[in-house]
Design a protein around this nucleic acid. Structure first.
Lengths: 101, 101
DNA sequence: CAAAAATGTACGCGAATTGAAAACATATAT
DNA sequence: ATATATGTTTTCAATTCGCGTACATTTTTG
């Protein structure tokens, strides 16, 4: 706590106020806290973040996903979407071989 | 704006204060606004949300990812991780057939 | 084990900020 | 053109904030 307050450059009594919930941080402080703990503001606020639709992530070059610490490329994401769509279709329609009814 | 203020159950002058940036919403109001616009608080604050490590999402049953509107199952996610790891390995090590040096 | 240093918690107050009503401005409708 | 709805600014009582200070608890150390 002392350390957190120091790193955020606020008085420890101020930080304590946040921790014990009798004081709300400013949006700037809130943002700083999220950065410090490397988490999202939504997480701090206990909000369930809205779900990410994968198809909407293919446009941008930065999709915010990572695998084994390495950013997921656009191509990897697209491959995955194709892959999973196919798999879903297969389980829907009877078996794979006798696909047609 | 009028409508947003009404839906949030705050005075229009209050909401205007947020819009024009000369007033900060309380955390509750901020959360309500995020809900209203179906977005994240981080997005509203203009924060780049920390990247999601896929391997950390396999534990929980709810991973927050969606494909074509349908939640991504744990199995689909695991398949994807396996799939992509393999693919990455293939491109690293020369060709697929003559794998060993 | 006791004293000292560090850390955590509570209180109090000046200063800053809030929420909202009211006044004013602009746009839209009749 | 006038009325009505919507957007913007101003103003102010009430609330809340940040932090110094005091007190409590834990940890360190000789």
């Amino acid at each position: 706590m002392q350390e957190a307050a120091d790193r955020l450059e606020i008085a420890k009594s101020t930080y304590a106020g946040y921790e014990y919930g009798y004081r709300e941080p400013s949006l700037q402080a809130l943002s700083d806290i999220a950065d410090l703990f490397e988490t999202s503001v939504d997480h701090i606020l206990g909000r369930s973040e809205p779900s990410l639709e994968l198809t909407k992530l293919t446009d941008k070059d930065y999709n915010g996903l990572t695998l084994d610490g390495t950013p997921l490329t656009k191509e990897e994401l697209i491959d995955f979407i194709t892959f999973t769509r196919m798999k879903r279709e297969m389980t829907t329609k009877e078996t794979f071989i006798k696909k047609e009814a």
